[in-house]
Design a protein around this nucleic acid. Structure first.
Length: 731
DNA sequence: CGAGTGATA
């Protein structure tokens, strides 16, 4: 208790409570360290607000929701799960008594789906809004739409909902304006100054043409030899870069003579630690341990160290200025993982990591000119970069028909929304008038991408969900197949993985996933089994948890009276693949020349089977395949592949070509009359040609080469690969 | 002939 009184927020306690009482919407800003996340809910609780309902506080990340709840429970001297609790997926630590509830933003979105008035809540606090996570952005729009009209605010509620939006100081005017010019309450932060310097290595013309890994290593070593004691944090973009940088650092650090080369004589060595998401947890834990006396720690990390993990004692930052970002590209209809310059706000966030405990320094390897010309002010929010199919379905299920004019804080491009509508229509999740179908209502219940949800529901209606749920779970977690960096071990891992594919009987990557899932689950020492087979045990464990949850949801849906029931008379193997077709008919490709396949999604992209697939090198036998996802590297690859027969998808494919975007956009904007629907249907009947039309369309598309975007991505990849090789040869 | 930034329901 006494400690919390020293926080900057404490002086403003009374004003803050008053500000929440005075208006239904409030923006609170304050840097990390101001105490807003832990204190504000406690103040409101002490002010007696909870007699009318709960306080819900959202976080973009699970760990944050859990750890903050733990701390607040401690401060309020109550058992976690009583007055103070948390809820994240797979872990609900709340009871009847819980009035201060920390949760992930995605959890609250689910709750709105069940009760759009949030009648259990008195206050909802959206925290870390500046991070602009997809769920937080949707919540912002929903809360504005549902509660900003004073007449509606109380409809169905006894008292209006209080909405507090908390963000770092940037961008607060925009938030306030968005929420009807609501009041803004600023809390001073408590961080230490970080001085930033620019480098000379990366200029505005050098986006991809500089080996920044080498430069980052040079700067880090310079810090090590010329700066006072204090740990270093280096930001790079990915695992291979990090490994490369660590190798270089290790090499160079060995030749340092600590009698002459080092400015601070208390420093006698450098401890180099890589850090990225897929690293084993025990190795990750090492990062947090203080270095031995007189040794300087140097952590080389991905963006994971920018928000998710906080390392104490960091005094120096070396910033490469780049990040890997998944961007949705509607022109080719897929997501492409790209290396892009970070935004200025992200650069400040990175720099701030050096000022947590004392004053720090940040060394940017790029020039001031690069900062000014190539780095955007803010990161493009997720909602403008990702596939919106799930989001649009959620909105539709909440009765929001006009998804184009929904109050987005930042509007996604209209074509992204139309693309989502098109996909939902193709999946039969919405009808021609843009209304949610029975199937759509079922799909939204499953925490899965819509295609996968459709496949799972198909299986459930056929009574064979045991085949599909493990697969859906496996595809929901990170890649479970480990592929080590060293060539010898790589071979060993590949052999093990091939053996697993063969064991599944049929050559089908989805079946392999099922085999791995079942084999590991029935093993008496699963973690050892994973180790033997080069499988990610941590990832597989989370797949088990996902599968359990999916099973519960499906069982619940099946108990509904109108859940569809179908029968199928045939082999299990065919049944399995027919279920996949129900969800993946948008991802079907037909064999073209040689190893090439041509997708049938209307883009007609030329793709190849990825070498990790069990179907790689067997292309000659295949005519039609279905795939889970696409990867653009040196070529356009399809990953997780399964052979199918044309007959299984032939009735579904025409639907991929019948949708007219102009119709969709008018459907999205207004309710459509019966007359209009009839008009469209007759027009379509006239348009629709016999069965061969699909093949015709495809042949036409096949000629059109893959779009510039794909070529660009490929060119960039090749260039980067070349640099990496150059970097290696320098060793 | 070859790949895995980071979150989340």
């Amino acid at each position: 208790m006494s400690e919390s009184k020293h926080l900057p927020i404490y002086r403003h306690k009374a004003e803050l409570i008053q500000a929440v009482k005075n208006s239904n919407f409030l923006v609170v800003t304050g840097e990390t360290g101001s105490g807003k996340t832990t204190q504000l809910p406690q103040y409101l609780y002490q002010a007696g607000i909870c007699k009318d309902g709960k306080i819900g506080i959202t976080q973009p990340r699970r760990v944050a929701a859990i750890t903050v709840a733990q701390r607040v429970a401690q401060e309020m001297q109550c058992t976690l799960g009583r007055e103070v609790g948390y809820q994240v997926r797979f872990d609900d630590c709340t009871t009847q008594d819980t009035v201060v509830k920390y949760m992930t933003d995605g959890c609250l979105l689910r709750e709105i789906l069940a009760d759009s008035l949030l009648s259990q809540y008195r206050v909802v606090i959206l925290d870390e809004v500046h991070e602009r996570s997809l769920s937080t952005d949707i919540l912002l729009g929903l809360l504005k739409k549902i509660f900003s009209d004073p007449a509606k605010a109380t409809s169905g509620r006894s008292v209006p909902l209080k909405v507090v939006v908390m963000s770092a100081t940037l961008d607060t005017d925009k938030l306030s304006a968005f929420l009807g010019d609501c009041p803004v309450f600023a809390i001073p932060g408590r961080t230490f100054p970080v001085t930033c310097t620019f480098g000379s290595a990366v200029g505005p013309k050098d986006i991809e043409s500089t080996n920044y890994v080498k430069e980052v290593v040079k700067v880090a070593l310079n810090v090590h030899t010329t700066e006072m004691a204090g740990d270093i944090l280096v930001f790079l973009t990915g695992q291979s870069e990090i490994e490369q940088a660590c190798d270089l650092l290790y090499e160079k650090a060995e030749s340092i003579d600590y009698r002459y080369d080092v400015y601070d004589q208390t420093v006698e060595g450098l401890l180099i630690l890589p850090l990225y998401g897929s690293m084993p947890t025990d190795q990750q834990r090492q990062i947090f341990q203080p270095a031995p006396p007189r040794i300087r720690k140097c952590v080389v990390a991905t963006n994971i160290a920018a928000t998710s993990l906080t390392i104490n004692g960091i005094k120096y930052i070396v910033d490469s200025g780049f990040v890997k970002q998944l961007n949705h590209n509607s022109r080719v209809g897929m997501d492409i993982l790209e290396v892009v310059p970070i935004s200025k706000s992200e650069a400040q966030q990175r720099a701030g990591r050096a000022g947590r405990t004392s004053a720090g320094k940040c060394f940017r390897i790029y020039t001031k000119e690069f900062w000014e010309k190539k780095m955007p002010e803010f990161t493009v929010p997720e909602i403008q970069r990702t596939s919106l199919t799930s989001v649009v379905l959620t909105l539709k299920c909440l009765g929001i028909h006009d998804v184009i004019r929904f109050p987005y804080l930042d509007c996604p491009e209209e074509r992204f929304i139309l693309e989502a509508l098109k996909q939902l229509y193709q999946f039969d999740a919405i009808d021609r008038r843009g209304r949610v179908t029975q199937l759509g209502e079922l799909m939204v219940e499953l925490p899965l991408p819509p295609g996968l949800a459709r496949a799972v529901l198909k299986a459930a209606s056929l009574g064979c969900q045991d085949l599909l749920l493990p697969v859906a779970a496996m595809l929901s977690v990170e890649n479970i197949f480990i592929r080590p960096g060293h060539p010898n071990k790589q071979k060993e891992a590949d052999i093990k993985h091939r053996a697993l594919a063969t064991r599944s009987g049929s050559m089908n990557d989805f079946a392999t996933l099922l085999t791995v899932f079942q084999a590991c689950k029935s093993s008496d020492r699963p973690s050892g089994w994973c180790k033997d087979n080069w499988i990610h045990w941590r990832a597989l464990k989370s797949a088990f948890a996902v599968e359990t949850q999916l099973q519960e949801i499906v069982a619940h849906l099946q108990r509904k009276r109108d859940f569809p029931v179908e029968t199928f008379d045939g082999q299990k193997n065919e049944l399995f693949r027919r279920c996949l077709c129900a969800g993946y008919f948008t991802n079907v490709a037909r064999r073209s020349v040689g190893k090439a396949f041509c997708t049938m999604d209307g883009h007609g992209s030329i793709v190849q089977i990825h070498p990790s697939s069990s179907l790689f090198d067997q292309e000659a036998e295949l005519n039609w395949v279905l795939f889970h996802d696409v990867l653009v590297t040196s070529r356009v690859y399809i990953r997780t592949v399964c052979p199918i027969q044309y007959e299984w998808v032939k009735d579904l494919l025409p639907k991929l070509h019948e949708v007219d975007v102009y119709e969709l956009s008018s459907v999205a904007r207004k309710e459509v009359t019966d007359e209009e629907v009839k008009k469209w249907e007759s027009r379509e009947a006239a348009k629709r040609r016999p069965e061969v039309s699909t093949v015709d369309v495809m042949k036409k598309l096949e000629k059109r080469n893959n779009e510039a975007t794909v070529n660009d991505a490929r060119a960039r990849y090749l260039q980067r690969k070349q640099q990496k090789q150059k970097g290696k040869s320098l060793l």
